[in-house]
Amino acid sequence: MTTRLLINGRARDVDVEPHRTLLEVLRDTLGIFDAKEGCNEGVCGACTVLLDGRPVSSCLVLAVATRGKPITTVRGLERDGDLHPLQDAFLRHGAVQCGFCTPGMLLTAYAFVEAHPHPDRAAIREALEGNLCRCTGYTKIVDAVEDYARNRCG
């Protein structure tokens, strides 16, 4: 079934079988590897993308069901090829180790700060609760999000 996917502001008409998840179509059909597969059951958050601006597990969404709705992957955060300030904060704070959780972490954090511009550390931790990271222990990720949120509002 030909389905129009809106990925990072670009329309892609893709032939999608109804039983394909968005994660499969991004990775296997479109070669967009921004979202990672860590569990395929909605727990780990490695496959997070924004659908209509809200974080979702792309492993638990049928691709056909996203037709016409804006999808943002981590590359959609960049502006004119420059790193988004949140990406930059992750770098400066050393919030990236193996990086497998990073795209999902960035998108969840981004959507959260858009909706909650002045979060404290506890709120940041709560917001990121569904994104597992096995490497960093989270401290530097929370540092990065906190720093980004603070600078974003000046």
């Binding site: 109804p18 039983h19 998840t21 395929n40 059951e41 909605g42 597990s57 492993c59 638990l60 969404v61 049928l62 056909v64 069901a65």
Partner: peptide, 22 residues
């Protein structure tokens, strides 16, 4: 889909037809 799709992924549910009510 947050309960149904995991079941589909695991092949624990095998419907022939899916009615998306969204």
């Amino acid at each position: 889909g947050q309960s149904l799709v995991p079941l589909l992924n695991y092949r624990l549910a095998r419907p022939r037809f899916v009615v998306d009510v969204n």
